[in-house]
Design a protein around this nucleic acid. Structure first.
Lengths: 105, 105
DNA sequence: TGACAGTACTTCGCATTGCGGAGTAGCGTG
DNA sequence: CACGCTACTCCGCAATGCGAAGTACTGTCA
């Protein structure tokens, strides 16, 4: 089964969730997501999602130089982002509950 | 929150699930889905999904005349469809479990 | 020194899929 | 006869995940 389509509309929630407790930069968020179970998520998907969330005003960014590689663009949730995470998590729970009922019969 | 994107990749599983116990025609499946909690699913989405599932060989169809309206094109799960439902349901459970863990912290 | 791998990010265009709108058609009601 | 409900089809759009390519910095190893 291809899980690509399942990720649609979920990746933004997942990215917000990975930033809830700690700021992160794109490559790091990618690793966190893969470690969390989204093994096959593409890098461009994460960067694109971060860009969209930033443009929507849910994230703020700051650049930090690294001594072991190129610079890192950190992302952090602002108040709007935390609200968005809360709303999105509720939407997800409603949605998945509906789906579970349908599958359970 | 817009649930449109969340439906992607899930609608086919949901449609298969509505056909598990009883054959149905497009308009009827639409009503079942809306009754099950997918209030805002569009009719064209359901018809499109049925067409894709049929083309993939998961469904068989037969037409039945109706005495109160136009003809009805019934869809029924075949063996491939039942297998697909089983696999898709597992994929969904894995996926949603991963998501729940991420949101739960 | 030079090739390579890992880190880190960006841009481009493609594929999938849900959806709105329009159209066709049959039936019953006012 | 206009309207509304049922039932289906087709068209084109929008959102989004993804692969591929490119840029660039660092450290390792031959």
């Amino acid at each position: 089964m291809d899980r690509t389509q399942l990720l649609k509309g979920v990746l933004d929630i997942a990215v917000l969730a990975t930033l809830r407790d700690e700021d992160g930069y794109g490559y790091d968020i990618l690793r966190r997501l893969r470690a969390a179970g989204f093994d096959d998520v593409g890098d461009a998907s994460v960067y694109g999602t971060l860009r969209r969330l930033f443009q929507a005003g849910h994230l703020v960014t700051y650049v930090v130089a690294s001594d072991s590689g190129p610079h890192r663009k950190y992302y952090s949730l602002n108040q709007s982002g935390r609200l968005q995470l809360k709303l999105a998590a509720e939407t997800w729970r409603d949605f998945s509950a509906t789906m579970d009922r349908l599958l359970a019969d």
